[in-house]
């Protein structure tokens, strides 16, 4: 792997939430490094706090203790792909995608060109003028991905981006994201609760435990791409991760 350097470093990140039954610890001293241009998958059971972790990295939530450090030129700016698409219903596809640049005050012609490039890349050419309500779930998430890339940031965080899609569309989108990645190098942190998705996509997989989450184990799938979920190595790794996950529950 061409992991040239550390991009994001988390040190002892902890987080508690107040709820009806008092304080619930969600993240327990999580430390991890994200390397440049890698596809890092954060895998964990439902409700384990994976999304919270991602929100903390994106500065949409704050940690109770611990630090998040961005190295190199990045000052914490990330592209973010949301589970529920989070598109602006009153904006068409083009305007949704160019929004990050518009907020930064980029000229109209420039941001149009960039947005069109990524709309084409996610296969939505011809749908620029459509509104989100007219698109299917898979297409909406393509818009979400195009928007994250348009932001121009070299780190893209994806929070269970295919969690709301049906199985068929989900497989399509997994291939799509790998295709996009082969065209444009980015550092990707991808959160999921789906073991097969993690193995299919990840250069590296970090397995989180149930709440309060800790990093349980790291896997580096030594599988040739395109990976096949029917290959024996794939299934062996899947069984191994499943067992470790079951132990944690």
């Amino acid at each position: 792997m061409a992991e040239t350097g550390c991009k994001i470093r988390l040190q002892s990140v902890s987080k508690c939430f107040d709820d009806k039954c008092g304080k619930t610890a969600v993240l327990d001293e999580i430390s991890l490094d994200v390397y440049e241009n890698e596809f890092l998958v954060i895998l964990g059971p439902g409700q384990c706090g994976k999304s919270v972790l991602l929100n903390i990295i994106a500065d949409m939530d704050s940690a109770d203790s611990g630090t998040v450090e961005f190295t190199g030129e990045n000052n914490g700016q990330v592209g973010f792909v949301f589970q529920r698409y989070a598109l602006f219903g009153w904006k068409n596809v083009l305007k949704n995608v160019e929004l990050p640049l518009k907020l930064k005050g980029v000229d109209k012609d420039v941001r149009r060109a960039v947005a069109m490039k990524y709309i084409e890349m996610v296969g939505l050419k011809g749908f620029e003028k459509s509104y989100p309500a007219q698109l299917s779930g898979g297409m909406k998430q393509r818009v979400g991905i195009a928007r994250a890339y348009t932001s121009g940031n070299d780190i893209i965080l994806m929070d269970e981006p295919f969690g709301a899609l049906d199985a068929q569309t989900r497989y399509q989108m997994q291939d799509e994201i790998l295709k996009i990645r082969s065209k444009e190098k980015k550092t990707i942190v991808f959160v999921t609760n789906n073991i097969e998705e993690a193995i299919y996509l990840g250069d590296r997989i970090l397995l989180l435990s149930n709440k309060p989450s800790k990093v349980m184990k790291e896997y580096v799938p030594d599988l040739k791409r395109p990976r096949k979920n029917t290959s024996s190595e794939f299934m062996r790794l899947r069984d191994e991760i499943t067992e470790t996950m079951d132990l944690a529950l």
Binding site: F80, A86, F88, S151
Partner: peptide, 29 residues
């Protein structure tokens, strides 16, 4: 106003005024 939409704009570096005019008001229309 959908909190996630506000987050979208915030991660893209929106100011408070932009959040109000570009996210809050259109959602409220």
């Amino acid at each position: 106003t959908n909190k996630t939409l506000l987050d979208v704009a915030k991660t893209a570096g929106a100011t408070n005024a932009q959040l109000f005019f570009k996210v809050g008001i259109p959602s409220a229309l």
